[in-house]
Design a protein around this nucleic acid. Structure first.
Lengths: 108, 108
DNA sequence: CCGCTGTTTCGACATGTGTCAAGATAGGGC
DNA sequence: GCCCTATCTTGACACATGTCGAAACAGCGG
């Protein structure tokens, strides 16, 4: 019904509550370190923290902090397996964000 | 050639420089007020600030600040026409972000 | 059980961010 | 030229965020 000039953003019911729910996901991607982390994680089925850290000139705790932000935003998930902790991307979450930015399907 | 398990993020050359360039766009969408502003702006060809402000319980300067952030991120643009200032969405910018989150086209 | 490595949590600090009130600027109408 | 409205800029403030080092925690291997 709305003109839907551009993209999913326009046709989604983006009221205040919905914005509060979704904004943290974009926010999590809004840091260069986290964006690279997400890209690295998305590049494989799963990846060990020990394979992420070497890509950055940052302390372990800082990487861990960023991973926590991404997880709390619902963009990734992870679990400890023995000594190492593995993270993987949650494609549905990314897809949900993508659909807000894409040109609207056909909505007419 | 990368496994490209999930999405554009994985296949994009997301090095540090690219991340620094793109992260601000996600960051701009990472605030609930700005996300709603973007949705409102995307819903029409263009929209006057005077039609945006009433949707929020925020001062004029605050709305103006958020619009500036969105504009500096390259997601919207705007111009003054007489008394009023009009903003419009930049679909290409949104599309660029969407392509990072979408399942990768066919890249195989 | 003890120590070793990988990861997270805690505490602290500097910087960034969202918000407002007050003032400045831009245009239109008298 | 003057005032009025719409918008932006500035200055200030409380609060959030990115970063680190130190310390805690989780498992493995002796």
């Amino acid at each position: 019904m709305p003109a839907s000039t551009c993209c999913g953003l326009a046709s989604a019911g983006m009221d205040a509550a919905e914005a509060e729910r979704i904004a943290p996901m974009f926010k999590a991607l809004g840091d260069p370190v986290r964006l690279r982390l997400a890209a690295l994680i998305a590049g494989q089925d799963e990846i060990c923290v020990c394979n992420l850290t070497p890509h950055f000139a940052l302390s372990g705790p800082t990487i861990s902090h960023h991973l926590k932000v991404l997880r709390e935003a619902g963009l990734i998930d992870g679990e400890r397996r023995g000594t190492w902790v593995y993270y993987w991307i949650k494609p549905d979450a990314l897809q949900a964000l993508a659909s807000l930015l894409q040109p609207v399907p056909v909505t007419a």
